[in-house]
Amino acid sequence: MHAVKNTYYVPSASYWPIMGSIGLVMAATGAVTALHNHNSQYGFYLLLLGFTMLVAMLFGWFRSVICEDAAELYSRQVEQSFRWGMAWFIFSEVAFFGAFFGVLFYARNYSVPWLAGSGDGVMTHHLLWPEFQGVWPLVENPDPTKFQNPKWYMGAWGVPAINTLILLSSAVTVTWAHWGVLQARRLQIILGLAATVLLGSLFLYFQAYEYIHAYQELELKISSGIYGTIFFTLTGFHGLHVAMGTLMLTVIGFRSLKGHFSPDNHFAFEATAWYWHFVDVVWLCLFVFVYCL
């Protein structure tokens, strides 16, 4: 329950942010070192250490927030700040995916047709790669010596269609769990969340299966031209978000077991549900634009 307060809670000094900054810069330095010296383990360890610090920071930071909430330091207004924060964070994620969808549209509608000689690309086509056909999905690259052609592209109606069903049903189960929170039905919360986590994991399992299939049988790789590039980056970043969302749902599940959420105070639950729906919508766009069209 929220007590009625007329002061806004300002947390006192905290070590978590500086830990986060140091973790981030260590991870970045480690990543670059690992990319430059493939033989040395040093960069990889630094990357790992940075990530460990980041995870520890997130754990400690959220723990502080949960304790402060339990101590009833937060007013309705503080919760509203969290709501705006999460909403705009999701908006920034939309912009991030927007950039990659932009690449897909540009490649399909401009760069590939131009390279194949349409519009102003007549001379480009003639001088660079006169053999290039430019059929989407691109299984024949302009320069196959540099970017090896895949055998075939990824169809829509096998694993991807199943994954679509899985994610859509997980949106239903998470909403069902939310109704459980609103009506304080413990069993419904736990079951709903467990089902959602299960469906999320199943999605990831099928995606891993699909990637192996792509690499081994279709020889479709991230390095096999713009189709492979955009296929693996879009589905890959989406998959990372599903993994992140599944992790968040798991944490929320454990917190539900501990009885952290009440019908009128459960924003952490709602934020996770928002995030999950966002991930779901991105997948729908992916399914339509990457697989179907």
């Binding site: 540009y106 490649a107 660079l128 430019g134 320069d143 540099k146 970017f147 390095s223």
Partner: peptide, 22 residues
């Protein structure tokens, strides 16, 4: 630079100009 993608490489169907748009 590192993973062999062809976002900005016409040899794989990408376009350096795409970077300028982004």
């Amino acid at each position: 630079r590192h993973f062999g993608t062809s976002f900005f490489n016409a040899g794989g169907g990408g376009d350096p100009v795409l970077f300028q748009h982004l």
